[in-house]
Design a protein around this nucleic acid. Structure first.
Lengths: 182, 182
DNA sequence: GAAGATTGACCCCTCAATCTTC
DNA sequence: GAAGATTGAGGGGTCAATCTTC
């Protein structure tokens, strides 16, 4: 996808008609969506390399690893991870395959429902997540240094959270307080 | 990449210690970055199908097409498109390949620099972009209906633009006022 | 030698079909 | 029959190597 918000600060009325008839009416909403995509892509390109080398399994696995790490018992059912991360079932299967191959996670059978299975972080996996998270923190801090005041940061987070809850509500589902398990 | 901002509204103090020792200290900045990724992923999954079927060439080409459409003469040098979209040179080559195969764009030699080449939208390409943009507009409007007040929308866009300019400055580079070209 | 573009090798995701278990 | 998970096929991306032109 990726939609362009592109045009600089003074979007409208820069170029009455850009050569042909393509309207330059940059709807606020289209611009907004484009900015989200561009910001995400920019962040990704800035932050991926660090996570990649820290995890050894492609930075895209970080999301999955983090979800597991934040869950009680460091384990989650496959389909729950898929819902939270937004990955397709197939994509998640392969993602867990890689983590298993790297020794960062293991699969466990689910006694209550023999169709389902859990993915659980290994000790190595837990350690790697912590390392990667630490590095991620410092890289983010460096990248965003001086960009927002605390209030701005708060405002941005609140608005983004509202957007996220609209377009990807499952991402907010954290495993919730269950019995500490084991 | 994709980092989890995950936890719902009441982030902190939901789960004093999630079974093991992984700190639940959700730094504001980490959360912010995670929210950007989650919002972008959510928007993508909501909006891609529409663009896909409207363009016939995978919705991810929309960004490239839009950049071309917004440029004078509907053409841009390959490397400029790559910089604006954030695609790698190789990725852009293949993306243009697909557009050419679909009849939406053509390659043109650059007289001033025989190393470079232009990608230019065909008439069909221009028409498709307009159709896709129209559909995109209505889908976005539907998706974001009632989410933000105009002021909130403005605030969010301003903050996101600042973030985007930090992490992906080239995205703002629009071809700028040149001679209308033909 | 550096820059613009392309190609080959490879990684990762999605979709649809399949199998098992509810 | 529906849900959870996996697999095969295929699309689309990156990186490194290469070729041409500056």
């Amino acid at each position: 996808v990726s939609v362009g918000a592109s045009t600089g600060q003074q979007d409208t009325t820069t170029h009455p008609r850009a050569t042909a008839g393509l309207a330059r009416t940059t709807d606020d909403q289209i611009t907004l969506v484009g900015l989200v995509f561009e910001a995400a892509a920019g962040l990704r390109r800035n932050l991926s390399p660090g996570l990649d080398c820290e995890l050894g399994v492609g930075g895209q696995s970080f999301d999955v690893l983090l979800r597991l790490a934040r869950s009680p018992g460091q384990r989650l059912r496959m389909s729950d991870v898929a819902a939270q991360t937004g990955l397709s079932p197939g994509g998640l299967t392969r993602s867990i395959d890689r983590l298993v191959a790297a020794g960062l996670a293991v699969r466990e059978a689910c006694p209550q429902d023999r169709r389902a299975s859990y993915a659980r972080l290994t000790e190595l996996g837990r350690a790697r997540v912590e390392d990667a998270l630490a590095r991620h923190r410092s890289e983010v801090a460096l990248l965003l240094e001086g960009l927002f005041t605390p209030e701005e940061s708060k405002t941005l987070a609140a608005l983004l959270r509202r957007l996220r809850d609209r377009v990807h509500p499952d991402a907010a589902l954290v495993s919730g307080p269950e019995e500490p398990s084991r």
